[in-house]
Design a protein around this nucleic acid. Structure first.
Length: 152
DNA sequence: GCCAACGTTGGC
DNA sequence: GCCAACGTTGGC
């Protein structure tokens, strides 16, 4: 069982959008970075991930989701009308994948980046590292537990 | 809107 | 394969 952090711009897709969907379930598409994609391929059913709001009024971790569907081809890459279209992707050679996530818990209050920075034990958390832009990346079990406790 | 820190592209 | 130019991410 592994833990992850997944970034989304809440203007595009927020934790409230997810909560409003049938089954509180959605595919997670549009990742167009190979390193992030490789992490998505490693995800297993039951893994948990932080839902992170980036480029927002309140930046930080908004809640927890569970991986309920393994990586499969991200068909938005083939859709010319999609913002996620990749002109180099074809049906036979589509490098991009999406996974399915289901909401576990929305935090009462977003745990902000500033709060994360002030918390002991999270010093090495990847999202806090300088220049860290990966939209999908791993979180340690220890970090996952500390942040989960903060949200109680 | 600025800009640091990356990732990608393309000429050579 | 190198690397300059360009594009993107994302905090501030």
């Amino acid at each position: 069982m592994n833990y992850w952090l997944m970034k989304s711009e809440p203007d595009v897709f927020s934790i409230d959008h997810l909560a409003a969907l049938p089954g509180k379930k959605s595919s997670w598409e549009g990742v167009r970075n190979y390193q992030a994609r490789n992490f998505m391929k490693q995800m297993q059913i039951g893994d948990q991930a932080f839902f992170y709001h980036s480029s927002a009024d309140v930046i930080g971790i908004a809640g927890i989701v569970r991986i309920t569907g393994l990586a499969e081809p991200d068909l938005f890459a083939l859709d010319k009308k999609s913002d996620y279209h990749d002109p180099k992707a074809t049906k036979d050679k589509n490098p991009w994948v999406s996974v399915t996530v289901t909401l576990v818990r929305k935090f009462k209050k977003v745990i902000t980046l500033a709060e994360l920075r002030e918390t002991k034990g999270l010093e090495k958390m990847l999202v806090l590292q300088r220049g860290m832009r990966l939209s999908v990346h791993p979180v340690t079990e220890k970090e996952f537990k500390i942040v989960s406790e903060m949200a109680k």
